[in-house]
Simulated scan of single mutants.
Amino acid sequence: MLRYVEREGVRLALTRRDGSGRPLLIVPGVMADAAAWQPVVAALDVPGPVYVLNRRGREPSGALGPDYSVRTEIDDLDHVLTEIVAAEGAEQGVDLFGWSFGGLVALEATARHTDTVRSLTLYEPVVRPFGRGALAALREAAEADDLDRAVEIVNLDVSGFSEDDVAQLRRSPAWEILRPLAAPLARELTALDEHVTDLRAFAALDLPVTLLLGALNEGTAPYGEAFARFASALPRARVVTMAGQGHLAHAQDPRGLAHHIGQTLCVAR
């Protein structure tokens, strides 16, 4: 089921899987939309409704807007959380999950909703200077409206995948899905690089926090290095390492990721 909320004239779309009880809200990162997370939603064994936010820049949500920043994303999520609480009941609260770029947004929005966010799960969140070395090339690709080049850059120069991996991806049906998702990429990663976050300020969050790490990324750039910064800044967080996984478990093993999310929510509740 598709639902819409509006903030300052921008439409934000959410998918909702029906359920009864405390809702779960999933916030994807870059190069993903709500549709990409539906296999995880389908595999989740949780009783409550499950929402996935289709962040701005992804149809059918609205455009990034002229003054886009990470603060825009935080304000969007702040508004969405308020709307979900109003729709589902304040006494239920909300379990919040954020992946990658969405993890940072979820963390910062949680600080505004400590009375309603009951648990926070972050799967390999990122923070500046993530992707900084690829920004110039991404901006050039955006100016040329070259979505193929943008997909190539984010996989090779940001995520660190091999040329063989990218060549195989280009031959797969997934490439055509990724092309439109790359349209806002340069602006998103630029906003991330400009956003100053003191992660230590969140150490005192008084709610269950779980950090999910793909074992293939442990101690490696870029995702493992970013993860280590969050783990250090959030010493009370529960850290879970997912065997055999990297940054894309939602696409490569949705059932396995759903199992980890379900276990996390059981612990939190």
Results as ranks from 00 to 15, higher is better:
residue 93 G to V: 11
residue 88 E to P: 07
residue 213 L to N: 15
residue 241 T to A: 13
residue 11 R to P: 06
residue 258 A to C: 10
residue 17 R to G: 12
residue 154 V to H: 01
residue 42 A to T: 06
residue 15 T to G: 14
residue 42 A to G: 03
residue 188 E to D: 09
residue 75 D to L: 12
residue 24 L to P: 01
residue 58 R to G: 06
residue 174 A to C: 04
residue 51 Y to A: 05
residue 174 A to H: 02
residue 35 A to D: 09
residue 191 A to Q: 02
residue 162 S to W: 06
residue 19 G to A: 13
residue 118 R to P: 10
residue 122 L to E: 09
residue 267 V to S: 12
residue 30 V to P: 03
residue 40 V to D: 10
residue 102 G to C: 03
residue 121 T to I: 14
residue 182 A to Q: 08
residue 136 A to W: 03
residue 86 A to P: 04
residue 57 G to L: 02
residue 107 L to W: 05
residue 205 L to N: 13
residue 114 T to W: 12
residue 228 A to Q: 07
residue 78 D to V: 12
residue 117 V to W: 13
residue 33 D to H: 13
residue 103 G to S: 00
residue 137 A to C: 02
residue 60 P to D: 09
residue 157 D to K: 04
residue 142 A to M: 08
residue 87 A to H: 13
residue 28 P to L: 13
residue 206 D to I: 07
residue 74 I to Q: 01
residue 121 T to H: 12
residue 241 T to D: 13
residue 70 V to S: 05
residue 34 A to M: 10
residue 78 D to M: 11
residue 93 G to P: 08
residue 61 S to D: 06
residue 202 F to W: 05
residue 139 R to K: 10
residue 82 T to Q: 15
residue 100 S to E: 06
residue 178 L to P: 05
residue 103 G to T: 01
residue 268 A to Y: 07
residue 114 T to I: 05
residue 246 G to F: 04
residue 165 D to V: 11
residue 32 A to I: 05
residue 48 G to A: 15
residue 73 E to N: 02
residue 266 C to Y: 14
residue 103 G to N: 04
residue 190 T to K: 14
